[in-house]
Nucleic acid binder design. Structure first.
Lengths: 306, 306
DNA sequence: TAAAAATACTCCATAGGTATTTTAT
DNA sequence: ATAAAATACCTATGGAGTATTTTTA
């Protein structure tokens, strides 16, 4: 369908309304900051386009014709909507405003997003974060099909089509029941982490694979469906696991049954990064958001590695 | 107040909506019947003007940004109003349609306008005649200040600023009581019309002056406020007068008391003309209307003199 | 690698300016 | 006669075309 607007221009409508208002081509031209012939010519074209004389040229004043008046009323509506568009653009184009659909992996979200929400509300009060939790694959899909604008995940991941900005490094802790063989070791070494009572998250959680590779255990280990379940299983003496630092902080329930120990290798942990579609025009804003997360982070996490 | 539209163009909004719809610059360009680079460039300018990227360029498809969507919705409203304007223009620009404020002198209106209305409804069903009666001076004023679009008056008049199209010639009749000295004259001559019982309309009616000059009587004659009053005064035997042919036709009341006689001079009468502001752009339509009145006229009147 | 959008450039339509003529009162 | 709009004519902006490069998945 080709344009049916036939060269109609908002500027010409402004000219016409100025003439109607001033009842004088010269004054209307001055108000529109153009020369009188320029304005006259555009009015002439507009009248041709509409098929009707809008004005009756007479002395001492221009009069709008009856037909012209109906059209000028409608022209006013057109311009009102156009101004509405520009007003809207002025508001909407502010950076860090409006809805932002943000995802986070499930082993991070519950322990970090409350912190992030406080921070974002302080720094960017107009930014409306819409939060989602999921597993890495689901988040990546949601990102690719536009349900999400950005996501917090553990890197490395396959980054094709994505922009990635590391945000912080989150160490893992050894978590085991009091009295467990690992709870009493005076000096914990990485090789001690292998054991047949390692409890893992279900397939799909990136944390599962990271714990597995650090512990060098067999994958027939016991399964938990969430960090919370896992915590309760450990409290029940079912075994031990590795959990990210944010998820072990400030835990009251069953803290008397469980011991958390830092791992011996300071590199044992995961890097959390903010990702988004490389093509998203808000890239710069997302980078700024990541910068804020890097600078002002929870005490349990560390600066992201280069 | 200078333009606040800053170069916003309806065409660009159409381009943007085409892209949003097609999710593809190439197809959008084809739909708008321009080249892809031309459309891309206009979208780029529009995004700059609005201060926001409207689209996220990605494969396989273009996606509209959240901010862009709000703006595109508004753009759609702008275009809807613009199309409304063009639709309205198409209707409104038809000739012989819409309201037409027409005035007529009081000695003509009641006797001719019913005829004219029938005729106009048949020939121009979309023409909405709004009728007014008044004296010549009042009609001219109303015409000049725009309350009237056109008027039917007796010429000649001072025609500065006015266009005039004669419509028909209306003969005068001698009207007197049965038994009046003029009713019995076998051959009526113009000079017989002088008499001290001539009844005239009040000051302001053009017919008063025309009758006066034809009759060569003194202006201390009796006064009537309307043709109807005059008719009753004649029936009451108060005197005689000259009345235009249309006003004496088809009279039932008191017809048995009154005699109407044609005047000896075939030029004794008045020419009725349609007048309008010379500057009114509907001049051609008024002329066409006058043409209709010339061609299809009541039987009592004659073709207007050259 | 392939498809698609962005650049580079050239051209031309037209909005706009100045000077002047025409028109209306 | 005068004020104001229309016309004539010229300039320059910018929209649109073709050819090409860059980008993204």
């Amino acid at each position: 369908m080709v344009s049916t607007l036939a060269g109609l221009s908002l500027r010409d409508l402004e000219y016409a309304l100025a003439v109607a208002d001033e009842q004088h081509f010269g004054r209307a031209a001055a108000r529109c900051a153009v020369s009188q012939p320029a304005l006259s010519e555009q009015i002439r074209k507009l009248e041709g386009l509409l098929g009707t004389k809008l004005f009756e040229r007479g002395r001492p004043a221009i009069r709008t014709t009856a037909r012209g008046q109906a059209l000028l009323d409608q022209a006013e509506r057109v311009l009102a909507e156009a101004h509405g568009l520009l007003d809207m653009a002025r508001n909407v184009s502010e950076p860090q405003t409006g809805p932002l659909h943000l995802g986070a992996i499930q082993t991070l979200g519950p322990y970090y997003l409350p912190f992030l929400l406080r921070q974002s509300r302080a720094s960017f009060p107009e930014l409306a974060l819409r939060l989602t939790e999921g597993q890495t694959d689901g988040l990546l899909n949601a990102l690719r099909n536009g349900e999400l604008d950005a996501a917090l995940i553990a890197i490395p991941i396959d980054m094709d089509g994505l922009a990635i900005e590391p945000v912080f490094f989150e160490p893992f802790h050894l978590v085991c029941p009091i009295g467990h063989r690992l709870s009493g070791l005076p000096r914990l070494r990485l090789r001690d982490l292998a054991g047949d009572d390692l409890i893992l998250l279900e397939e799909g959680h990136c944390l599962r694979d990271q714990a597995l590779s650090l512990c060098q255990s067999a994958p027939q280990a016991r399964l938990a469906t969430s960090v919370e379940t896992l915590w309760h299983m450990i409290a029940a003496g079912e075994g031990y696991s590795l959990l990210p630092a944010l998820s072990t902080a400030n835990r009251a329930t069953m803290a008397d049954l469980i011991i958390c120990r830092p791992l011996p290798d300071p590199a044992a942990g995961r890097t959390i990064a903010l990702i988004w579609r490389r093509t998203d025009p808000r890239g710069a804003e997302f980078r700024q958001l990541a910068g804020m997360m890097q600078r002002d982070r929870p005490e349990q996490v560390q600066e992201a590695p280069g």
